[in-house]
Design a protein around this nucleic acid. Structure first.
Lengths: 208, 208
DNA sequence: AAATCATTAAAACAAGTGTTTGAAATGCGC
DNA sequence: GCGCATTTCAAACACTTGTTTTAATGATTT
């Protein structure tokens, strides 16, 4: 961390603390202490605590969304050409699988993954809105594609089931490595295996 | 609200504010102002803000859990007697359906329902722990019963899938009436219909 | 009616928050 | 080496938080 510039040091520290403790419970003093920089540095470089969160969102969410959109467009094109409707699993995988790539960027710590999980369910409206602003487009696209895969279902039902799915995903990304609900949660499973099971779970629920 | 005693006035107000704004974002000043009582009343009657949350949890969660446990024991007994394993759907319904009863107690406002949804995913460890302390027993029992219904699955996998389910449920209970993720979420559906769809969703995911 | 107890009230308290300030230090082009 | 812009720093600021205090009020019992 020592040879990084101040801005990057702040981002890295904040990412970890936001992920573990949540946005509001994380103080600027904790962030700057961990980063080894002065308290005022956050406001100098980012403007505000909230703007720092936005910078962190942008840093990861924009590339992630691009991957998702490209994959979804590929699936849509394929369906267009072949005249066949896409199937639910391949559509949902456009959304869930890139999360693993996100993980690798993160050098295995999974902090941003946790932060993403948190953001959708954060009690603070501001946090949710900053997050949703960046994913709403992708989700709309996902609903469109799912509707093509499930032409006998109404758009409202598809959207509701997707909400179930995102809830499951959000909670899993946040708490998977804590075995939070139960002591008996399997900590031996890699996050890849967990996402695989999760994908399967929501595919079955969506199709059913 | 006027003819209620101070303690009840505080509980009612806090319930609503905790549900809508979350525990930490709700101030004692907001609670007491809404209740029309003095600021010091919370600490006088409950001891602390945290103890107030515990009182609210106890008020609803204890009866709710009793209903769930009774239903689960009935299903377990039936399976014992008939020699047949219980099926996944009837087991999960022991857990999801009493939520509706909770709703009616609530006189239709659904505030405590939202609070329950929030508590499982709250960024604050204290809130989660106070909540989990009160539901862990029921969840353990639920895992036991699910394992009987799905003897070919490992307990770890069952627990993980249940975690997916609780994530979906938590998010739905909290945000259903906000149509938060998508503008296109169906607001015309009653909470009963939503829970019905949710139950179906997690049954399919659990069985698959 | 007096005395004891529970409750309410206004005010202050101590601690913590994000943010701002103004001066010191640093880096860089000339 | 000078001058200027950028960055760092310690300190203070303005505000909010949960909690405590101390006195006033109300109710209950003897």
């Amino acid at each position: 961390m020592a040879q990084l510039d101040t801005k990057t040091k702040i981002i890295k520290s904040a990412e970890e603390l936001f992920a573990i403790d949540g946005f509001h419970h994380t103080t600027l003093r904790a962030i700057t202490a961990k980063a080894g920089v002065n308290l005022a540095a956050v406001n100098y470089h980012f403007g505000s605590k909230e703007a720092l969160l936005e910078a962190i969102f942008d840093r990861h969410l924009l590339p992630l969304n691009n991957i998702r959109i490209k994959r979804m467009q590929a699936v849509a094109d394929q369906a267009e050409k072949s005249g066949k409707k896409p199937n639910v699993e391949e559509v949902l995988r456009c959304f869930t699988e890139p999360t693993l790539a996100l993980l690798h960027r993160d050098s295995g710590t999974g902090h941003f993954r946790m932060l993403v999980g948190r953001s959708l369910s954060d009690p603070d409206q501001t946090v949710r809105q900053l997050f949703l602003k960046r994913v709403r487009g992708v989700i709309e696209l996902l609903v469109d594609l799912l509707c093509k895969a499930l032409p006998h279902r109404s758009r409202e039902d598809v959207a509701l089931k997707l909400q179930f799915s995102l809830g499951a995903m959000s909670h899993t990304l946040t708490f998977q490595n804590q075995g939070l609900i139960l002591g008996s949660v399997d900590k031996s499973k890699s996050i890849g295996e967990v996402i695989e099971m999760l994908t399967d779970f929501i595919v079955k629920g969506m199709e059913g």
